[in-house]
Write a protein that binds this DNA or RNA. Structure first.
Length: 225
DNA sequence: GCCCAGGTGGGTA
DNA sequence: TACCCACATGGG
């Protein structure tokens, strides 16, 4: 509250504006429909998006891209459809766990997550085997349009490099930083996370840090050396 | 051949 | 708590 909070909010918005000006709107999430985006969130775990897309396309071609159809798919068939997505046995299990949850708590209706107390739904999702914090927040934000900020390794690296947070800051700490200082605007959270990912791919990859000439240079809290 | 990708859960000290 | 590891395909 007060002054410090206002400063943090303004700096977070400054970073957002700088990224938006350089890279433009990113158009996330590239998926059609609530359930398809949920599936994409599972398939994208530690996986290049291109491969996750292949899995989605195969599910769709096989007519398995719905809660009911997926629930009725034999495990071996599901695994085979998911093979191009990588870690396919785990992802088959995780998709089944997610669908089981949707039926157990929400009548098999993915759009049910668009309503109700956000943090309570988030806790439910985190209890689903294979749904961790990033996947839960991706589902809430990108599938159902809830203002739940998505943190990832890129976000942690960016805030660390800007001198905001320790390198080992927890997921929940980083999420809270954004959510306590920004208005709960799904469109803002959506674009912000997508821009961080875009920026990381362009400039902040692990083995190729290129901070010189970075569009965020003037917002860095470290002294330039 | 090596490293990485829009993570998560299990095991060990 | 803090590491370490398996998972697995596909691209640079």
């Amino acid at each position: 509250m007060g002054e410090n909070t206002d400063i943090v909010r303004q700096q977070l918005l400054d970073i957002y504006q700088a990224l938006l000006e350089v890279y433009g709107p990113q158009g996330w999430w590239p998926g059609e429909g609530t359930f398809e985006v949920m599936v994409g969130a599972i398939l994208a775990q530690n996986t290049a998006w291109r491969n996750a897309e292949r899995g989605i396309a195969r599910l769709k071609e096989a007519g398995r891209l719905s809660p009911a159809a997926l629930r009725g798919t034999p495990p071996e068939e599901l695994e085979e459809l998911l093979r191009p997505a990588g870690t396919y046995r785990r992802k088959a299990q995780r998709l089944r766990a997610l669908v089981d949850y949707l039926y157990r708590r929400h009548g098999g209706e993915p759009d049910a997550l668009a309503h109700g107390p956000l943090e309570e739904l988030r806790r439910e999702l985190l209890e689903v085997h294979g749904v961790g914090p990033e996947t839960a927040d991706s589902i809430l934000l990108y599938a159902t349009g809830r203002p739940s900020f998505v943190v990832d390794a890129y976000t942690r690296r960016l805030l660390f490099r800007l001198g905001w947070t320790p390198e080992q800051a927890s997921y929940e700490d980083l999420r809270a930083l954004f959510m306590q200082h920004l208005p709960p605007d799904p469109a803002l959270f959506n674009e912000y996370h997508a821009l961080i990912v875009r920026h990381a791919k362009e400039r902040c990859r692990k083995r190729a840090p290129r901070c010189g000439g970075c569009p965020l240079e003037s917002l860095c809290r470290f002294e330039k050396g």
